Computed example of a mutant assay.
Amino acid sequence: MHSTTAPSNLTGIAMMIAGMACLSVNDALAKTLTQHYSPIQILFLRNLIALPVALVVARILAGASGLWSTRPLVHFMRGGLWVGATYLFFTSLTYLALAESTALAFVAPLFITALSALLLRDPVGWRRWLAVLTGFAGVVIAIRPGTAAFHPAMLLPVGTAFLYALMMLSARLLDPRESVWTLLLWLTLTGTVLGGILTPLVWVPIRPGDLHLFLAIAVVGTAGVTLITQAFRLAPAVVLAPLDYTALIWATAFGWFIWSEIPDTPTMIGASVIIASGIFVIYRESRAATR
């Protein structure tokens, strides 16, 4: 068993790291595009381009039944939360360094744990509650409210994390027999529909030199989600979940290389506290699941 499991884990780890790299490229492209376009327009065009790919993937990997759902309203509710989360994050990139927005959004697993206890009455022990509170303390360290370093846009990635947590928890309202590819298809579809409704309000003609950026953001965004999804099919979540934080490495590298952004010391200290708390929560939840 070890000979088959270990290679599977290694492949999953490689896919997870590659997927996070793709999503970091996605964010870097979004930051570039927000200089000229509304986040809503960027989100709409990204989903519009990615929708045919998501449709084909769902049809091939989940079959004809993977294109439909018995609870479309739940899917649209989740899609609305996802659009809201992405809009807040893309907007934050207009004002903040890429690594800064990425680090603050890492509070999402802590929101998931807290909301699962408060809304769904899931049992959460004192150790996880302590980790959650410690993680939120890391957010305070990073954003430094009441000081000259604080910018209101720092709250946007935190809002992203909150909406993302609600979206993840709302998956419990769906039929558990639905394929993950069905979920991804409906998220892309909802993003396209909602974006199509809102984009005319903020539409800016696309400059010819930016067409390749919109195509690229759709490709890398779809590739990132696909790689991460496949990774979780090959390796245990407890192995892969901490690798989510490799996005901060990519974000820091891209921010430094493209915009000469270097996160300051309080931001890195706060990010370290948030990441350590998130990893501890993941570890404790895996222990609870095993028991």
Rank of each mutant, 00 (worst) to 15 (best):
161 A>T: 07
59 R>C: 07
85 A>S: 15
80 G>A: 08
54 A>W: 12
55 L>S: 14
129 W>Q: 08
36 H>E: 13
61 L>Y: 09
52 P>K: 03
3 S>R: 14
74 V>D: 03
177 R>E: 15
145 P>V: 12
98 L>R: 03
26 N>Y: 03
150 F>I: 10
217 I>T: 02
38 S>E: 00
51 L>Q: 13
47 N>R: 02
192 T>D: 11
175 D>P: 14
209 G>L: 10
169 L>R: 13
180 V>D: 00
7 P>M: 14
147 T>E: 13
187 L>Q: 15
219 V>C: 01
45 L>I: 13
171 A>F: 00
155 L>D: 07
258 I>L: 15
73 L>A: 15
239 V>R: 10
101 S>D: 11
71 R>K: 15
70 T>W: 00
81 L>P: 02
75 H>D: 05
103 A>E: 03
178 E>Y: 06
10 L>Q: 12
68 W>E: 09
93 L>N: 04
187 L>R: 09
106 F>V: 05
96 L>Y: 09
5 T>I: 11
245 Y>I: 11
191 G>V: 03
183 L>K: 10
10 L>T: 07
188 T>S: 15
145 P>S: 11
212 H>C: 00
181 W>K: 09
288 A>C: 00
287 R>Y: 03
167 M>Y: 12
15 M>D: 02
27 D>M: 06
111 F>V: 04
43 L>G: 04
94 T>E: 14
124 V>Y: 11
6 A>P: 00
101 S>V: 05
9 N>R: 12
72 P>N: 05
259 W>P: 04
160 T>V: 09
108 A>W: 01
193 V>Y: 05
55 L>I: 14
268 M>H: 08
175 D>E: 05
28 A>I: 09
66 G>P: 05
